[in-house]
């Protein structure tokens, strides 16, 4: 393999830390310009041209998401969620163009307003090797509860 598995794992763990710790700018810097951050709702495989998602961010909207979170007026994150997540069951595939698809499971404990919620799901990262690391080209998050009412998903998932 042309890539180092440990390097990919480090990337995923690092991303998880950035999300857990609300390190917004560092997280945003992981993304490639042709980014797609996608969290479907209803079921895992929807047609985004005809169906809504919880999140379907291109890079412009990612910037807006981060700008909003940093504004001090994103009340649903004031106070912020306290979070820790585990990332595991990592499977890697090298694509023909040299990019890497990483599928992993996560389990997230999120605490806010005295209420702790558990989120879980499978995440599919698409990574583009660049210099010593990767750019995050796309990320699709398949939430276990994506067809249930969710009270607050304004943190980074």
């Amino acid at each position: 393999m042309a890539f180092d598995r440990q390097q990919v794992e480090q990337f995923l763990y690092h991303e998880a830390d950035l999300m857990d710790e609300h390190r917004y700018d560092e997280w945003l810097a992981l993304w490639a310009d042709d980014a797609l951050y996608w969290v479907p709702t209803g079921r895992d495989d929807i047609n985004p041209a005809r169906e809504i998602s919880l999140i379907y961010d291109d890079h412009v909207r990612l910037q807006v998401r981060i700008a909003r979170l940093k504004s001090g007026f994103a009340h649903a994150q004031e106070p912020k969620s306290r979070m820790r997540r585990l990332v595991s069951n990592i499977l890697l595939t090298e694509e023909a163009n040299g990019e890497i698809t990483a599928s992993s499971n996560f389990l997230l404990a999120e605490l806010r307003r005295g209420k702790q919620d558990i989120f879980a799901g499978r995440t599919i990262h698409r990574l583009r090797p660049q210099n010593d690391s990767f750019k995050l080209v796309s990320k699709k998050v398949l939430l276990v509860n994506n067809n249930e009412p969710i009270d607050n998903l304004t943190f980074l998932i």
């Binding site: 169906e51 809504i52 919880l54 649903a76 009270d151 607050n152 304004t154």
Partner: peptide, 20 residues
Amino acid sequence: LRSHEAFFGSASFGGPDDSE
């Protein structure tokens, strides 16, 4: 749909602040 997602839904930039 994309306009809807901006303001509405649990991960959007509008509705969750109302719920809060």
